[in-house]
């Protein structure tokens, strides 16, 4: 009750499509994308992705909240290895340290085991309503959105010394993994939206 009162005083209501997303809502279709350059030299189009589940993860090399969860993202990809799941990392920030050359260096350094693409037009990020990094979007076989938000309930930040600290201690609820499992099974995702926590994505005017 007290929290609700605080909310009323400190903030104003938002007219969003989703609970925490101005553009996308659960059930919305994947915005089509074409020929996005990847760090491995390939280019990726949405029509070429055939797996049953597609996970798009908003990333930014410079972001301490991305660096903090990098290894857990790698583990997530490993967790679903051999299953019909495709993970695509997406970067849209236009700062030099977030662009393709830096993405290649970062991906190799931290051992990214998934396709990592750059969208210079920022169109895909805009169409997803993606405003933070990291932010997870899970799509089913029909490419309808089944989950968006956090990886888990305790975002982690890497400090200047390279130490990683989870803000709520060890994660207990693994929203993205649960969403992928449910989507693979053709079931509704129990918690379909969470408030992603991290660095803001910078879009051009």
């Amino acid at each position: 009750m007290k929290t609700l009162l605080l909310l009323a005083l400190l903030a104003a209501p938002n007219a969003f499509a989703g609970q925490y997303n101005a553009i996308m809502n659960i059930g919305d279709a994947l915005p089509a994308f074409e020929n996005l350059p990847a760090t491995d030299g390939s280019s990726v189009s949405s029509k070429d992705i055939t797996e049953d589940v597609l996970v798009v993860v908003m990333l930014a090399n410079h972001c301490p909240w991305v660096k903090g969860m990098d290894q857990d993202l790698v583990k997530l990809v490993d967790q679903f290895k051999g299953q019909s799941v495709r993970v695509v990392g997406l970067a849209v920030n236009l700062r030099e340290d977030d662009r393709l050359p830096a993405m290649k260096v970062h991906g190799e350094k931290v051992g990214y085991n998934f396709t990592y693409v750059f969208d210079e037009s920022q169109d895909l990020g805009r169409a997803l309503g993606a405003t933070r990094t990291p932010e997870y979007f899970v799509f089913d076989k029909e490419r309808k959105l089944t989950y968006m938000g956090l990886l888990y309930d305790s975002p982690a930040k890497m400090n200047k010394s390279g130490e990683v600290r989870h803000i709520n201690g060890e994660p207990k609820t693994f929203y993205a993994a649960d969403a992928i499992t449910a989507t693979l099974d053709g079931k509704a995702v129990e918690q379909a939206e969470t408030r992603a926590h991290g660095c803001s994505v910078k879009y051009t005017e």
Binding site: A11, T131, V201
Partner: peptide, 26 residues
């Protein structure tokens, strides 16, 4: 009720009149 920062909230006479955020990419 913040999704991300930077964000600037402007109050006048105790009321939140302007909520400037990056919540909408457009």
């Amino acid at each position: 009720d913040l999704l991300g920062i930077p964000a600037v909230f402007i109050y006048n006479k105790g009321q939140l009149t302007h909520r400037l955020t990056g919540d909408n990419p457009n």
